[in-house]
Computed example of a mutant assay.
Amino acid sequence: MYKIPANTLFMGKRLIYMPECHSTNDEASKLIGAGGEVNGTIMITDKQVAGKGQRGNRWEAAPAKNLTFSIVITPTRFSAINQAYLTMVVSLGIHDWLSRTLQQKKVYIKWPNDVLVADRKVCGILIENHITGNFISHAIVGIGLNINQETFQAPLAVSLKMLTGKAFNLQNCFEQVVACIESRYLMLEQNEFVLIKAEYLERLYWIGEPHYFISAGKRFSGIITGTDESGRLVIDVNGTSKTFDVKEVSFVR
């Protein structure tokens, strides 16, 4: 059972706790379909049996060990062409909290919205935007944050407990991370697009470094230089800038 965050303006003020569910994003979608959405509503569960990840992957989370929740957002006339900025502010909010919690460890955002510590994935984000006309009518922000789990099938997954050797209070973590996300989201409501993107790029994994990638089954070397106006990854390949969408490129480590 989770309590309503005391330190937010609107996120989590309506909190729906489910001991177990298929997917918090799916439950949020049902809520919206029934006309029951309220801006900032959070659906949270202890056990998610079919959590969603990027690229159609499943999210691995042991019951009652991690944070698995979805935030329903209904932006005020937020143009669909700027939807990449929602990904940025959510990623930045989680990055802010992790950086404060893990002060001696380097935290990065791996494009488009995974969060890594020591080259290992500690958080995954899946945002489902619903567009009406030229605007986002609502968005479902699904978050999986590894807190106290000690083993994973995925070789590059890691939790806060694995990184620090200590257990964390899930309620405290929940309240703190939601407050950080809300703080960043309010920047979006104030149209601070230039600052948001600059801070996102400052924290971007592999930016400005030569690395290998795979696209269309071919391995190539390139340097990440940033993202374009649609949020696609920009990689310099032998002096030519190429853009890639989420399913068009993968990182080689």
Rank of each mutant, 00 (worst) to 15 (best):
I235A: 04
G12P: 02
M1I: 07
A6V: 08
V194G: 01
P210R: 00
F193R: 10
Y85Q: 07
F10D: 05
S79R: 03
I214P: 02
I147K: 00
L92C: 03
G36P: 09
G142Y: 13
Q171I: 08
S215E: 02
M187Y: 13
A167R: 14
E199M: 09
I223T: 11
I73D: 01
S70H: 02
M162Q: 04
Q54C: 12
R184N: 13
F78G: 02
G165N: 03
S99H: 06
W111N: 00
V237P: 08
S159N: 01
N238E: 15
Y2N: 08
A157L: 08
F220K: 05
R77N: 15
F174V: 12
P210F: 00
G124A: 00
V90H: 01
N39I: 01
L15E: 09
I32Y: 07
L145N: 04
I131D: 01
P155N: 07
R77T: 10
K121R: 13
E229F: 05
R100K: 14
L145E: 01
T151Q: 15
F251H: 10
K247P: 07
L86I: 12
M88F: 07
I109G: 06
G217W: 03
T240D: 15
V194I: 08
T225V: 15
V194T: 09
F69D: 09
H211W: 09
V249K: 00
H95E: 14
G124D: 00
L86V: 13
D228I: 01
E248S: 10
S250W: 06
T132V: 14
C173Y: 11
P75Q: 05
S99W: 00
